[in-house]
């Protein structure tokens, strides 16, 4: 700051930011929820590790794990995880065009098409996983 102007400037007021800044407005709330989906993504990664371990230990351990994972508690947990990872996927694909600029020749592809392609790939890949597992 230039000192020339100092005498016309009494102390300026600095507002302190509240730790609950993200509660105040809906977009901030949605942002924090979007960021917190990462916890559920990580939670499922850990569940996958546990499953891999059981699979490696042998049929008995695997069956035991399956039983404990079919209880109402486990299903409820998975439903919660599902809702959050779904939110993650949707927000992730919707933001894809902000980082990606795709061109065909000299023409820029509009963001809505990039989003649509992402959603279509999502459906196709999910279908692929279902198909492999139901074989």
């Amino acid at each position: 700051m230039s000192t020339r102007y100092e005498r016309y400037r009494p102390t300026s007021y600095h507002h302190k930011m509240s730790i609950f800044w993200w509660v105040k407005r809906k977009p901030y709330m949605l942002f924090i929820i979007r960021e917190l989906t990462s916890i559920f993504v990580a939670a499922y990664a850990i569940i996958l590790i546990v499953k891999l371990n059981a699979l490696k230990q042998g049929a008995e351990v695997w069956e035991a794990l399956l039983v404990s994972l079919s209880g109402p508690f486990s299903v409820t947990v998975h439903i919660v995880v599902f809702i959050f990872v779904l939110f993650h996927s949707i927000t992730w694909f919707k933001l894809a065009p902000t980082a990606m600029v795709v061109k065909i020749g000299k023409k820029k592809i509009p963001g809505s098409i990039i989003i649509a392609v992402n959603f279509m790939m999502w459906i196709l890949l999910s279908g692929g996983i279902v198909w492999i597992l139901l074989q």
Binding site: L69, S70, V81, V85, L86, I129, V130
Partner: peptide, 21 residues
């Protein structure tokens, strides 16, 4: 990680965590 999890985790959770149990 965001991309691969967005594409694949929901279907995994749905199949193994909800549909099969």
């Amino acid at each position: 990680g965001g991309t691969i999890s967005a594409f694949f985790i929901p279907v995994h959770v749905l199949l193994f965590g909800i549909a099969m149990p």
